[in-house]
Design a binder for these strands. Structure first.
Lengths: 195, 195
DNA sequence: CGCGACGTTGATTTGCCTCAACGATTGTGG
DNA sequence: CCACAATCGTTGAGGCAAATCAACGTCGCG
């Protein structure tokens, strides 16, 4: 029988051997959520519920600044984690909003469940250490890109890295993720199409 | 007797209780290095040796792009970790260079030692999980700042966050870290001094 | 002393933003 | 099933923040 948590268990197994007991506890630590397209999963201003593992669909999280402008910080497709680590760590209201871009399914790991999981089976520390380490690498990569790439180079790099995303993510969100206006992205696209 | 590794042990103890055996192993996992001002510790193009924990002084790591321009990505003062996680993880040559800004002392944890430490005492996974998690939060913070702040706001935020750094780090490196030219930072400073 | 690194200043340029208008597509209610 | 509104991508004109280029004063140091 196929279960929602299969994808997650496979992902964890890449870094960790699991005993049947550990696997079972892991599977039950999550709440399964089906969210239709366009819905808000977590709103800024409220405390985060926990970490989210996407099993299907696509999520987007964005930050709203003082002027009220939104800035997309992250897309999460199947197999990716997302969530507001700051809110989770500091126990403060979240500054991000997370929404679905298409119908999606995800596994919600609440803060309480996460702590319980780590306390009961400390071996999972290793899994999250690796996840965070990898995420850190890509965040560093993104920062140096923002410094040394032009807007066009950032767009080209995005297309290489996420070739499928452009098909169903509105361009204005991609522009926001890349730190430019939709208008300017449009002009880049025209320029690129002309050859 | 005071030892170089004391600062590190205290830092680890904030998140983890250590048995005498664990503490002893930890202390011996590092190589102690004293590096005079201006010296390169790790050069880009070479494989990373490992993670570095700064016990005194100040380190700077920067990335050299295709055009040959340097971009400072990180300053590390006493109590901070630094190193090229990408190179460490993927076992590829480093793309960063790390140098001392003043006479410094640091603890070098080679990749081999790190793996040995984690294998022998898996409880240290937790420590690095927390370190990486915190680092991830500040990287995310930095990315949204780059999106929504003007150059002046970034400089003001930098001064709040690292009030002491400006005293001994040349302004051109701070400008680079903030993603602007030294000339423009100079103009910002003049503007700010005029009130 | 003289050289090199650093911070500053001014003139000019430019990459990207802002604002406004306009088709094309999507979705929705009558 | 059509009319209409809303959303989205595009285009153009004009503007601004920050980069570029060049010159100059200052300081530490061999």
């Amino acid at each position: 029988m196929l279960r929602q948590t299969d994808s997650l268990v496979r992902a964890v197994r890449k870094h960790l051997d699991l005993t049947p007991e550990e696997e079972n506890f892991l599977r039950n630590a999550f709440q399964i959520q089906s969210v239709p397209r366009g819905e808000v999963i977590e709103a800024s201003g409220e405390p985060t519920r926990g970490l989210m593992y996407v099993t299907s669909g696509c999520l987007m999280t964005y930050y709203t600044d003082k002027k009220g402008d939104d800035h997309v910080t992250y897309f999460a497709t199947a197999g990716w984690w997302t969530g507001d680590l700051h809110s989770l760590t500091a126990d403060e209201p979240s500054i991000y909003t997370t929404r679905t871009l298409v119908d999606s399914e995800l596994l919600m790991l609440t803060n309480a469940s996460l702590n319980q999981l780590l306390e009961r089976y400390p071996r999972f520390e290793r899994y999250f250490r690796i996840i965070f380490q990898n995420s850190l690498v890509s965040h560093q990569h993104r920062i140096i890109q923002n410094y040394s790439y032009t807007a066009q180079e950032r767009y080209e790099s995005f297309r290489e890295r996420f070739p499928t995303l452009e098909q169903y993510v509105p361009l204005k969100y991609i522009a926001s993720y890349l730190g430019m206006t939709p208008e300017f992205l449009s002009k880049i696209r025209r320029r690129m199409a002309k050859r």
